[in-house]
Write a protein that binds this DNA or RNA. Structure first.
Lengths: 111, 111
DNA sequence: ATCTTATATCGCAAATATACGATTAAAGAA
DNA sequence: TTCTTTAATCGTATATTTGCGATATAAGAT
């Protein structure tokens, strides 16, 4: 693109969009599910479960971490990842708020 | 990328990811908000409200429509867009289900 | 110290997304 | 019919994402 215009929208709109972007790939949805099913923290087992190369999985984990959806700590020679509940619930609440707000104004169908 | 591997994930994971992708740009979040604030359906007023060219807005609207989040009908020389509540609530419920499922298994922090 | 093992990062190729101007299409107004 | 208005689509440039192999890093094992 010529110029990126994302900055011209409100911070809340950008935050919501960034959260959505972090979840916009099935591999990352899958990673979140894996992190949930195992009650303990998961490291490279994720690589075994996904149909992707180790480096690709690592990249997806990094994106989830950068977006704040998961946390990662080094545990000896391996890495332990967990869901960041605070951020997750915050964004979930924001989505729900958006949906609820929409619903009030649009009880009747229009077109 | 060499090959796209998205198809190798489950349909639900792909559906969720596609929904998230549709909301992964602040312009599209903004469009959804505009469609909510105006109780009647909106056509090109969106173009006036967003800091983007007409063709770009049209492209974003098309993406939201393709993802099933909005509907669009032709009204004379202009187009009327509305939120597709059914799809919207379905995906919202799926997100909530995912979040709830995660919560049950991870009451305690792990790392 | 050397050898694994686990994971992050680099470098690259290919696919997608973003954005715009120009053009097209479709319908009402003159 | 011709003009205007509205919106979709085409073509293009650039940015970002996705994916992998290769390499680097870091720590435990031998």
């Amino acid at each position: 693109m010529a110029i990126h215009k994302k900055e011209e929208f409100t911070q809340k709109e950008q935050d919501l969009a960034n959260f959505a972007k972090a979840m916009s790939h099935p591999a990352r949805i899958s990673i979140l599910k894996v992190l949930a099913q195992r009650n303990q923290c998961i490291c490279g087992e994720i690589v075994e479960l996904l149909p992707l190369a180790q480096s690709t999985v690592s990249q997806h984990l990094k994106e989830l971490k950068t977006a704040g959806l998961i946390t990662g700590t080094i545990d000896g020679p391996r890495s332990c990842y967990c869901i960041n509940w605070k951020a997750f619930e915050k964004f979930n609440a924001e989505f729900n708020f958006l949906f609820a707000k929409l619903k009030v104004n649009n009880e009747k169908a229009c077109c």
